[in-house]
Design a protein around this nucleic acid. Structure first.
Length: 389
DNA sequence: TCTGGGGTCCTAGGACCC
DNA sequence: TCTGGGGTCCTAGGACCC
């Protein structure tokens, strides 16, 4: 007989901020804001800051540094406290974002259990761990709690950082559970806890319900997960379609059969940049051209690093009014060549009327194949075409 | 909440082929 | 010659996630 499914979701607490505090322990307890430069910015001069030398070089945050800091993502990664402290304390210390130590931390964070459990990576600061095999018939909840605590301890020993863990019967519930007691939380969620602990939560807590769906649900008077769970399936399917409506209801009842995804090949690789100021297609033509070339080179670089070729080349534009559009083009053969990518991307660009200022430019390569694979060749139809002409 | 960068997945229409 | 249904590919857009 299979043991009951038992999935842990592990989420690092305020990851970026924590990593930086690890590097500069003397900053602990001070108001810290993280934001600003990355190493390669097409329009670097206005954004770039001098390298941080703690703690001698403390700077006042400047308003124009922080287009990105106010995003929801930033708040999540840096922690609300850091965000708010900037409003409250204009003298807060400004640290540049530096991804290098994060990679290190990430590498460090794996060994303790890597070989003993199935792990799904979810980006930079989250994983799912399948603990089903660690079940012993008749064990007490205390044993499970102790196991989760050992994992937290191992993370702290390996990285010096704290994390929050939720354990439940599936990924959906484990993810919600890990958030219930943040930071440094440990939450076990049994099936019988659904009504008491999950149903009172806002629907947004469900991974897969974003701002749009939240808004649509609110318009129907549905705010909490329990509201959702109480609805008849036909009602939801009428408003959200068969598949999504069905999924919403299942999610509200804590039902989720998704397996852990233990490995996966990249499906697309892209580079994009938001300009420091909106750019005019005509007046800033030169600048845009440079950025465009840099983006193509960057994507080509990433493809090479990941040993991939791609057949579909696409662009992404965002206008000053935030309207966003994409164009793509599929080639006869996959490529990782910067020139070829640039030519195809320019083809795409030609299909767009550039009559407004631009805010963002992006280049994407998809339909990826591993370098040297059989598909890394002209497609059959194309061969035929060549043979005929 | 005036919105960064890198992704995934889904939907939908049209082209094209059998 | 016309009609039809199914499958796959291409393209565009959108929602969502970390």
């Amino acid at each position: 007989m299979n043991p009951p499914r038992r999935i842990a979701h592990l989420d690092m607490d305020a990851f970026y901020a924590s990593v930086e505090l690890l590097r500069y322990p003397e900053l602990r307890g001070l108001p810290v804001v993280i934001g600003g430069s990355r190493d390669q910015q097409p329009l670097a001069p206005r954004r770039r800051q001098p390298p941080f030398r703690a703690p001698a070089r403390l700077r006042r945050p400047r308003r124009d540094h922080h287009r990105d800091l106010r995003s929801a993502r930033a708040r999540r990664l840096f922690g609300d406290g850091h965000h708010e402290s900037r409003q409250a304390a204009p003298d807060a210390i400004l640290l540049p974002v530096d991804f290098a130590p994060i990679d290190t931390t990430r590498a460090c964070s794996k060994p303790p259990w890597r070989n003993r459990a199935a792990i799904e990576d979810r980006g930079i600061d989250e994983i799912y761990i399948d603990l089903s095999e660690h079940y012993e018939p008749g064990e007490s909840p205390d044993a499970l709690r102790a196991l989760a605590q050992r994992i937290k301890d191992a993370v702290r020993v390996a990285t010096g950082l704290s994390c929050s863990i939720g354990v439940a019967a599936n990924k959906l519930l484990a993810k919600i559970a890990s958030e219930l007691d943040k930071p440094d939380g440990l939450t076990l969620l049994a099936a019988s806890d659904l009504a008491k602990r999950i149903w009172p939560l806002p629907v947004r807590k469900i991974n897969g319900i974003g701002p749009k769906t939240d808004e649509r649900l609110a318009a129907l008077g549905i705010h909490r997960i329990g509201d959702l769970a109480a609805l008849p399936a036909p009602f939801l399917q009428q408003h959200f379609g068969r598949a999504y409506g069905g999924w919403l209801l299942a999610a509200a009842h804590g039902i989720d059969d998704r397996p852990l995804v233990l490995s996966s090949e990249p499906k697309s690789i892209s580079r994009e940049t938001t300009f420091e100021r909106d750019l005019d297609p005509r007046a800033d033509r030169e600048t845009l051209n440079e950025i465009f070339t840099t983006l193509c080179a960057g994507v080509a670089d990433d493809l090479r690093r990941k040993a991939c070729l791609g057949r579909t080349i696409g662009i992404k534009l965002r206008f000053a009014d935030f309207q966003t559009l994409t164009r793509d083009l599929t080639l006869a053969t996959a490529t990782a060549d910067a020139q070829q990518i640039r030519r195809a991307a320019r083809e795409c660009l030609r299909r767009v009327t550039l009559d407004r200022k631009l805010r963002l430019l992006g280049v994407r390569v998809s339909a990826l194949v591993p370098l040297g694979s059989p598909e890394d060749q002209p497609r059959q139809g194309q061969l035929l075409l060549c043979a005929r002409s």
